[in-house]
């Protein structure tokens, strides 16, 4: 209290170096991973020249290709289905008062807080008790379910920011509720739907724990396959796959960014 003048925390000495150290801690391992994906040798820690050989190996590996294909298919379907379901949930819960409003919101977003292993075990027990054969379909169902809250949040945020009188204006101009939805609500929600879909897509593509439990013999996804490869020893092949996944997600993010900006500007 003696010195009442607040000092901006960013003015303390050492703040800059801590920040740089933090960024290095975050990105140095990823940078290493990328660099060593171009290593000519078998080692992931000893540089022996630049080459694309591990990328070529990846493309020649039918197991990786099958797993990647599975992952992309599951992520695409799961993201799409969960986005549609989340859109319905958002339409039903936003901008209207009803009994159990808070409960509905909590129920929809609670899975984000549940430890993933709990969801994974629950899903497994559920499928087994129903007698469903584990495989592609169980992975897909589980992914759709856990993607819903991720898709729901951006859609909800966008819907909350939408001017409610726009719907009144559409009705005033002779649009039925369905046509008002297609012509007004849906186009205005597009950026929210886009980010919801992308988030769900990335989360599905990336998932390991739930997938590991509900995947049956013979069905695998990219994260499961990579984990399997690591158990046989680390080669730069894994670096190459990871680098490609990284580039893929950066491209997706860039697309989302460009779409978001153009919809704001136009």
């Amino acid at each position: 209290m003696a010195n009442a003048r607040m000092k901006d925390i960013r003015a303390f000495s050492g703040f800059g170096s801590i920040a740089v150290a933090g960024v290095l801690f975050l990105y140095l391992p990823i940078l290493f991973l990328c660099v060593y994906s171009f290593n000519d040798g078998r080692s992931v820690s000893q540089w022996s020249g630049f080459s694309f050989r591990w990328y070529i190996t990846v493309f020649g590996n039918s197991g990786i290709k099958a797993a990647a294909m599975n992952s992309l298919t599951i992520a695409t379907i799961a993201a799409s289905v969960s986005t549609v379901l989340a859109l319905g949930a958002a339409m039903a819960t936003v901008n209207r008062r009803f009994k159990g409003e808070t409960l509905a919101y909590a129920t929809l977003t609670f899975p984000l807080m549940v430890p993933e292993i709990v969801t994974a075990v629950a899903s497994l027990v559920f499928f087994v008790s129903l007698g469903v054969r584990l495989g592609f379909s169980t992975i897909l169902i589980a992914h759709i379910v856990f993607c819903i809250p991720f898709a729901y949040l951006p859609i909800r945020a966008r819907l909350e920011g939408m001017d409610a009188t726009l719907n009144a204006a559409a009705a005033d101009l002779y649009a039925s509720p369905i046509r008002a939805f297609w012509r007004i609500t849906l186009p205005l929600l597009a950026p929210g739907l886009m980010s919801g879909w992308l988030l769900a897509f990335i989360i599905s593509l990336d998932d390991f724990i739930i997938t590991a439990l509900v995947a049956g013999p013979g069905s695998t996804t990219l994260p499961l396959h990579i984990y399997g490869m690591l158990r046989l020893g680390i080669t730069p092949e894994v670096n190459a796959i990871s680098t490609m996944m990284l580039v893929g997600s950066i491209v997706l993010l860039a697309i989302a960014g460009v779409l978001g900006r153009s919809s704001k500007n136009s």
């Binding site: 009188t165 009144a168 101009l173 205005l188 919809s263």
Partner: peptide
């Protein structure tokens, strides 16, 4: 009757123009 079935149009206070 709902708004879309009435021979009436409205100029809203904040105009409610469709932004897209």
């Amino acid at each position: 009757l709902p708004p879309e079935a009435r021979p009436v149009n409205t100029v809203f206070q904040q105009y409610a123009l469709f932004p897209h």
